[in-house]
């Protein structure tokens, strides 16, 4: 049912854990099946230097968290805020149809962590430069 990539990230999730003095925290609950994710980010010079997370959810949810953490580390806040659920699913070699909502969960949690950081650092350059702010639509242009 899952791709090898998914199983790999599910079996050996990268960057699991909590950042005690995180610069941003994003917590989301899954309205579909009741699961949860919490993302923690560390930011330096508008770049995400570390990501950790905790996930209560299915194999896809865990693999998605792991993949997003890998994708986000080293990206600028702006770049990371444009990471979408589809990009994550693609990086995992695809997800079963009924599991796409789990990838929304991951992207949402990361974006929330970034928003959290930005709300605490309202003087940030990014906010001034990026007038549209954080991308809140997914690739299909639908509101999340």
């Amino acid at each position: 049912m899952y791709t090898e990539k998914v199983m790999d990230h599910f079996r050996n999730p990268r960057n699991v854990g909590v950042i005690d003095n995180a610069d941003g925290v994003g917590e989301v609950g899954n309205p579909v099946c009741g699961d949860m994710m919490t993302f923690y980010i560390k930011v330096k010079d508008h770049t995400i230097t570390d990501v950790k997370y905790q996930t209560f959810g299915c194999g896809a949810a865990i693999a998605v968290s792991s993949m997003i953490s890998e994708l986000a580390i080293g990206k600028t806040l702006e770049e990371a805020s444009h990471l979408t659920n589809n990009m994550v699913a693609e990086a995992l070699g695809g997800l079963p149809e009924q599991k796409y909502h789990c990838s929304n969960l991951g992207a949402d949690a990361l974006h929330k962590a970034i928003e959290d950081y930005l709300s605490k650092h309202s003087d940030t350059l990014l906010k001034k430069e990026n007038k549209q702010g954080i991308n809140t639509t997914n690739e299909n242009g639908r509101e999340k």
Partner: peptide, 27 residues
Amino acid sequence: EGESLLLYLDDAGFAVSTGSACSSHSL
């Protein structure tokens, strides 16, 4: 969550079952 538990146990050699939402098609 049950599906994760089931799959980890599967990896360890055990076939079990769960009633979790994530493991069902209807979620």
